[in-house]
Every structure is written in C-alpha cells, then in structure tokens.
Design a protein around this nucleic acid. Structure first.
Lengths: 173, 173
DNA sequence: TCACATCTGTTAGTGTCTAACACATGGGGC
DNA sequence: GCCCCATGTGTTAGACACTAACAGATGTGA
C-alpha cells in the first residue's frame, strides 16, 4: 500500500513489492492471487452478514439490510477507517481496481441475499432490495472518500439509505 | 464473440481473434484497447441520456430516471436483445468481464447524474437516486440473462424499479 | 535423528499490451 | 500521370502479470 500510494499502482511492479517485502515475486502471488488483491483484500463481508442476522425480523427487508450496513460501518475503528480511505484513494483512481471494487460489492450482495434466503421472501425482491441498499452505501462511501474522509461517513450513509428506503410502509415477509 | 462463445474467453487468445479476422494482433489492439472491450463494446449510454432528457420534469427525480431506463430497454430491437444476451452470457461467467460490466454501469451512473445536473437538485441525492435505479435495472437484466432470456425483460425491470421507487410521494426539485 | 509437511526460490514459459518504426494503399493537387 | 500525404496495417522488441514444475530450505513431530 505504501509503494502504491507513493509511486502509483500501474507504475509499481509486483517485483517492486516483492523486493520491498524481501521475498520473491512468486511468494507474493502465492498469497495474493492477483496484483489487484494486494489493495483489495478485506474481510468486511462476514461482519455485514453478522449484523444482518442480528436485525429484528419484524422490520421490512430493505430496512433490515440498510440498518445492518449502517451499523457495520459505524462499528469500524479509526484504523479500519484509515485503511478503507487508503484503499479507496488508490482504488477509485485506477480503472482495474475500481472495477474489482464493484465486483466485490456484487459478492457482498450475494452474501446478503444468501443470509436472508429461506425467510419466505421472493428471491428477486430480496436481491433488488440488497442491491439498492448496497448502491446507497457505496454512494456514501465514494462521496466520503472523494472528500478526503473529512465528512461523517455514517451520517452520509444514513442520508443515502433514507433516500432509497424513505418511508417504506410495507409489511415484512 | 463467436470464438469466445465456442472456446471460452480465457482460452481464446487475442492472436486467435486476430487470425479469425485475418488481421494482426496489433490491429485488434488498435480498435479495442483491451481484450475485454471485444465483448463489452456497446453504445447504450447516449440512448439512456436521450430518454432521461425526454422525461417530464414535473416527476420526482427517481421516477424520471427509472422510467427512462425502462423506456430505453423496451425500445431495444430483437437483434439488440440477442446481442445483449450473448454479452451477458459470456460476461457474467468470466470474472474479469463481470468486473468491467459493473464499471460500465458506474459510467452510466455518471452520465445520468451529469445529464440531470443544473436542475437545482442536491448532487448527492441525485447520485443516490441514479445508483438505486441502475442497481434495480441491473438486477432485472442479470436475472433475465440467468434465465436464458426467456422472461420478459421489460416486465422484470418494471418490477425491480417498483421495489426501489415504490410509492414515492415526494415533490420534484 | 529422521521423516514429513510446509514454505520459499528458481526457471521457463504464455499471454496481454505498449512503443517505435517501416510499409502499403488510396485520394487530391500540380 | 506523378507526387504528397494521410490513414491503415504489419513487424519487432520489450515490459509485465501470471502459471507450472521442480528443487532447496525450514521447522515439527515421532
């Protein structure tokens, strides 16, 4: 991350990273399947799923997902926030990384839909609701990163989720 | 597209495509910046923007975007549908292409937000609304492709958009 | 101390993509 | 008809990401 931030992602080779880590290039590829994974490796999905499962089941589906996303973001430590910002700073400016980030959110969407399956909700409706919430959360995160992390991420995300969810008065299940 | 469908994307080299087109590899890269662009090249964004601009301005923003997406999909010819399905068939199964597809939607989101700027709406709210609609449209398109294109895409998209928009009673601007 | 699994390095190779230069083709002005 | 020039294309050389197969090192348990 230090090398990428200093010299740029595209202009830093895997060999450079390997040398800085005092290992061979092969060793890097053994732990990170691609160069992109050096930046994108994170384990936030299980945390989100935990928060999803902890939501009261008497709420509308879209509300449960949105609240879970908001909670799992609010629970981040300052260190995690700093790491997230560093990742986004590099990731949003490099096309290859940006694409991979969106795909990471697609994976998150799949995890969420999987965690909430078997509740009798229509599969497609669940998928759409998860997509809408993730889209809103992403909008907040991107905006936050573009402003250099100076704004309140949790508040931004709450605003974004409110736009998508607004006064949903539909019943659960 | 034929080669990729027959022999797989990863197992078909650019040299193979170039040979089939009876040109050199260099010529391929001159017209398509990357191998992925051989599959992903499309020009749907301007059409969406046209439909966006054609919406009555007395509707809520999210409604205008959603309707425009639905219209520009409904207006597709059978040939365009077939091409879309072929692209999705290959694209969804190849990680590198899937990632790039998501990034294409990010670009679409930017076009939409740009087309609707200067209307006095809060920039962030506009961005979130566009993201939610695109997310819904994408859910419909992916579902449609996963079912082999047998379902009614316009109807799927209408259902998805209704979930995101539902009975929004907020005023425009 | 030995057998074994795990980790790491080396080598050789494939494939994407770039840069620089040379060649061919075809149309417009003299 | 001939040259000039723009455009399109091919060739070559090369950087870099990534893979596969093999060999050496290291540490752990019996």
């Amino acid at each position: 991350m230090r090398l990428f931030a200093e010299r740029g992602f595209d202009t830093t080779t895997v060999a450079d990273v390997a040398a800085a880590a005092e290992v061979s290039s092969m060793t890097v590829f053994r732990y990170f399947p691609t160069k992109e994974d050096l930046v994108l490796a994170d384990d936030h999905d299980p945390i989100i799923v935990d928060h999803i499962r902890a939501q009261p089941t008497d709420q509308p589906m879209i509300q449960r997902i949105g609240t879970a996303l908001l909670e799992s973001t609010s629970a981040q430590s300052p260190d995690e926030r700093a790491m997230l910002l560093a990742r986004l700073r590099i990731g949003l400016s490099v096309p290859a990384l940006r694409s991979r980030m969106w795909d990471g959110q697609y994976q998150t969407q799949r995890y969420i839909a999987e965690a909430l399956a078997d509740e009798g909700i229509d599969e497609f409706e669940l998928w759409v609701a998860a997509g809408a919430c993730i889209s809103a959360a992403t909008a907040a995160i991107v905006r936050w990163a573009e402003r250099g992390g100076t704004e309140d991420l949790a508040e931004l995300m709450a605003v974004a989720l409110r736009i998508v969810i607004h006064s949903s008065d539909r019943s659960p299940s």
